[in-house]
Computed example of a mutant assay.
Amino acid sequence: MFFYRKEKEVNQVGIWKRMKEDMDVVFEQDPAARSYFEVFLTYSGLHAVWWHRVAHMFYRRRMFFIARAISQLNRFLTGIEIHPGAIIGRRLFIDHGMGVVIGETCEIGDNVTIFQGVTLGGTGKEKGKRHPTVKDNALIATGAKVLGSITIGKSAKVGAGSVVLKDVPDHATIVGVPGKVVRQHGEKIRKDLDHHKLPDPVANRCEHLQQEIDELRAEIAELKEIVKGKEGE
């Protein structure tokens, strides 16, 4: 109900004011932005959010086919797929959004940042609420996969390439596959997290094979010595 109440408040804000607000977010987060004219015409993440609002309006009126058609047009034009049923708050910033997927029952709060290749999807097992809830001020980095009816807390950060299957607390940073909390409220959680020391199965197998080769060479050398001794008799 929290997100539905916020959605109603958002819809009461003027359309042009909302569009201006969306463009202001781009200037705040992207140093490459130079003018409102450039941002208005060339930022696909911005266009995707605007198209979604139109699709979502039809979706709420139970005009599902029109809503889905608009969302597919949105996907074709921007490379960003947002289901028309998803609930999105104010000031969402999708940066370099190609490949972003946002599922039907997603709920996204205010001031959220999403980078390219992010998936806010389901696991294929749930019914009803089956996609993530992302709270205010969260950041989801490049290529992260957030799956299932889980919650990404306020001001949380999901690291690039992470796969998140469990709730993330407020003000936490999560990384890895599967995702693990490494910081919360700016303090390190796991002091022994050394990514350069993670197991490498390929290297381990190569070392095992090299060991077998060395043992075979030693056995061959020993057999050669035995053969030479017999020939000298």
Rank of each mutant, 00 (worst) to 15 (best):
F27I: 03
D95I: 03
R53E: 12
K8S: 10
V202Q: 11
R68Y: 00
D136N: 14
G143W: 04
A33V: 00
Q12I: 00
A32I: 05
K129P: 02
V227D: 08
V101F: 05
H56C: 12
K228Y: 04
V181T: 02
C106Y: 06
V39F: 02
G186I: 07
C106Q: 05
M23F: 05
W16G: 10
V202N: 10
L147I: 09
G99H: 07
R62C: 05
M98Q: 12
G122Y: 03
R53N: 11
D24Q: 15
K191R: 14
G97C: 09
K180T: 02
D214A: 15
R217G: 02
N111Q: 04
G89T: 02
G179H: 08
F37H: 13
E28S: 06
E81Y: 03
A141T: 00
N111R: 09
E28T: 01
M98A: 03
I213T: 02
E81K: 08
I82F: 04
S149K: 15
R62L: 06
V49W: 11
R90D: 05
L193F: 14
R91N: 13
A144H: 10
K197C: 04
I102N: 09
E187N: 09
E28A: 05
L209S: 10
H171L: 05
H195A: 11
R91W: 08
C106F: 06
T78Y: 10
L92S: 02
H208T: 10
K8T: 07
V202C: 02
